[in-house]
Design a protein around this nucleic acid. Structure first.
Lengths: 194, 194, 194, 194
DNA sequence: CATGAATGAGCTTTCATTCAT
DNA sequence: CATGAATGAAAGCTCATTCAT
C-alpha cells in the first residue's frame, strides 16, 4: 500500500473512532507512519482528506450496483426492495467507518463539496423511491403514503445500524436485513382482505 | 431564568449547531451573558455541562410518560405502540438539540458518565421491547422476529428524523408518526390469511 | 507600564530590527515578558499589533504640530519650510522604529487599514505642498517646478535618513536638517540675477 | 534563457512583489518552470539566490558607467552631477525590483555577504562625493556643507523614487531627474551676489 | 541533470482552565 | 459571586532543505 493510501486509511479509522475534529493531523500521520509534514505532501489540508474519503466511498459503483437491481424487471418491486435492503445493510456493516463519515462528516466540508456529495446521496435515494413508486403503481403497495416519508423510514431503519450493530458481534447482516425486509415490505403491502 | 440555566441553554443550542468540540466556552459564556470566568462558577469543566445537558433531557419524566402508556392495559399492544411512536417522533422534533447531543455527544463523556446515560437509554428501549413482546404473546404480532432487531428498526426509523426533518418545514410530527406507525405496525402484524 | 504597552514596545523594536514577518509572536511575547497566549489576550492577531503601532505613531498630534507651522503667517514660506524640515528630520531620528514600520509595514496591513493610514499620510504631505505653493505664489520660489516632484524630493531627502543615520552617532538632527534646509530652500529660490 | 537565469528572474520579481521572506522556493520554482528539487541544483540555499541577485545588479558596469562621467573633465562638476542624477533616477526606474532588493534585502544576507555589498555601495557613493568635492574646490559650490550629508541628501532624493514613482505612470525619469538636478545643483551653487 | 517524497522545525492561532482581585 | 488577566498545551499549516531514484 502506498503512503497516500496509508494516510487515507489511518484517517478513515480515526475519524470513525473519534470524529473529524477530535482527530489531529498528528494522529493521522502517526497512524500512517509519516511525519506531519508528510501528510501535507499528499493532502493540501485536513479537510481535503475528509472529502477524499467521502468521494472514495460514495463512488459510482454503489450507484451502479443498486441501479442494476432497480432496473431488473424480472423482479417484482417487493423483490427489488428486498435486495436493496440487503445491499444497504450489508454495505453499512462492511463499511461502517465510511458510513459514519459519510453521514456525520458532511457538515465539515465546504459548501461546494457538500453540494457534490449531497447530489450523489440524492441520486441514491431516488432509486429507492422509484422502486417504491413502482410497487404503488402496480397496486402491490398501499397508496396512501407519502413516498418521501416512507423512504426516509427505510433509510433510518437501515442507517441506524451503525449506532448499535457490532460488526464483531454474533448478528449477521443477513439476519438483520431479512428482518428489516419482512417488516418493511409487509408494512408496505396492501392488507389482503379476508 | 437564572444564570446557570442561561448557560445550559446557550450550550445546548451551540452544541446542536456546531457540535461539542467546535463550541468554545467563550461562545457559551457570551451566549449566556456571563464572563468566561463566570462559567466556571457553575460548571467545573466544559465536559460537565455536556453531562448536565444529557441528564436534564433524559430525565425521568420521559421514562414515566412512556411507562404510563405501556402499562395502560385498556390499550392493545398495537395501540400502545402507536402512541409510543407518536411520543418518540414528537419528542425528537420538539427537542432536536437535545436529541443530537444525546446521541452524538455521548462519546465525549467520561466512561462512568457514559454508563449512567446508557443505562437510562436502555431502560427506555426496554419499554418498547416489552410492548412488542406483549403483542407477540397475545398472538397479534409475528413470532419469528428477533425482538431486539425489531426495536432497533423502530428506533432507527424514529431517530433518523433529526437527520432530515426540518422543524420549520411543512411536515408535522403527526403526519410522520402516523406513516411510521401504520408502516411498522402493519409490518409487525400477522398476515390475515385469506 | 502595563502589559499591553509592554507588548507594543516589544513589537515595535523587533519589527524595526528584523521586520514584521521575520518577527514571531513568540519573540514579541518573550520581549514583553508574557506567554504566547498572553499576546492574544490583548491583540486578536499579529496584524492588529502592526496596525496599533501605525496608529499610535501617525497620531494627529504630528499633523497638528506641522499645521500650526504652516498656518503661522508671521513666517515666510522659506522660514516655514525650514521649520518643517527641522520637524521632519527630528521626528525621524527620534522615532526611527516607528518610521520604519510606518513606511515598510504598510504593505502587511489589510486593504482597509492601508487606506486609513495612507489618507493620514497624504494629509501630512499636503501641508508641505501647500507651503511650497505659497512660496511660488509669493514669487519667492521658482515657478517651473512640478510641486509634487518637489515635495517627493523633500520627503526622499528627509525620510532616507533612517537608512543611514545612526541615532547614537555624532551627527545631530539639527546639523542635518540645517544642511537639508539650506540645500533645498536655496535650490527652490529664484536666482537673484546680477 | 537558461534555467539558472529563469530562476533568478522568477526570484527577482517575486522578491520585489512580496519580499524575500514572503516568497517561497516553491513559488520561485514554479515561476521558473522547475521542480523544487531543481532549484537546489542551481543554488545551495534560498539565501544564495538573494546574494546572486545583489551581485548581478550591483555589477561593476554601473560603477564603470558613472566613473566614466566623473572622470570626463570636459564637463564641469555641475554638468557631471546632472548626468549622474540622470543616471541614478533612470537606473532606479528601469530596475525597480533590483533596487528594492538592493536596499531592503541586505538585512537578510549573512554578515560577510553584507560586507561585500556594502563596500560596492560605498565605492559608488564615493564617486558622487568626489564630484561634489570638485565643485567645492573649483569654487562653484558652497563650501560650508558636510559633503557626506549632501551626498546622502542626493541619494535620498533619488532613491526614494521607488517608494512613490509608478513606472507605468505618466511621469518620465527624464522629467524627474531634471527637476531633481535643478533643485539640487542650484541649492549647491553659491548664490550670485548682486 | 532533475524529480518529488519526506522531514522537522517553526509559525499563528485557539482554547480549557487557573487564579488574584 | 464575578471578572478578566494569564497560561500552556495543542492545533493546522508552511517551508527550507535533504535525499533516493
Amino acid at each position: 500500500m502506498n503512503t497516500r493510501d496509508k494516510i487515507l486509511e489511518s484517517a478513515l479509522h480515526l475519524f470513525d473512532e473519534k470524529g473529524y475534529h477530535q482527530t489531529s493531523i498528528q494522529e493521522i500521520s502517526e497512524g500512517a507512519g509519516v511525519s506531519k509534514g508528510g501528510f501535507f505532501h499528499y493532502f493540501p489540508s485536513k479537510n481535503d482528506i475528509l472529502f477524499a474519503l467521502q468521494e472514495s466511498f460514495c463512488i459510482d459503483s454503489h450507484l451502479n450496483n443498486i441501479e442494476k437491481v432497480a432496473l431488473n424487471d424480472d423482479l417484482s418491486p417487493a423483490e427489488k426492495l428486498h435486495k436493496l435492503i440487503d445491499y444497504e445493510v450489508y454495505t453499512h456493516v462492511k463499511n461502517r467507518p465510511n458510513v459514519v463519515i459519510f453521514y456525520h462528516g458532511l457538515k465539515n466540508l465546504s459548501e461546494d463539496k457538500i453540494k457534490i456529495i449531497k447530489e450523489k446521496r440524492d441520486r441514491y435515494e431516488e432509486i429507492f423511491r422509484k422502486v417504491i413508486r413502482q410497487g404503488i403503481e402496480r397496486g402491490d403497495f398501499k397508496d396512501d403514503f407519502d413516498i418521501n416519508i416512507v423512504s426516509k423510514a427505510l433509510f433510518g431503519m437501515c442507517n441506524w445500524t451503525y449506532m448499535w450493530l457490532d460488526p464483531e458481534g454474533p448478528m449477521t447482516p443477513g439476519q438483520i436485513s431479512d428482518t428489516f425486509s419482512k417488516l418493511f415490505i409487509d408494512g408496505l403491502h396492501k392488507k389482503r382482505e379476508a
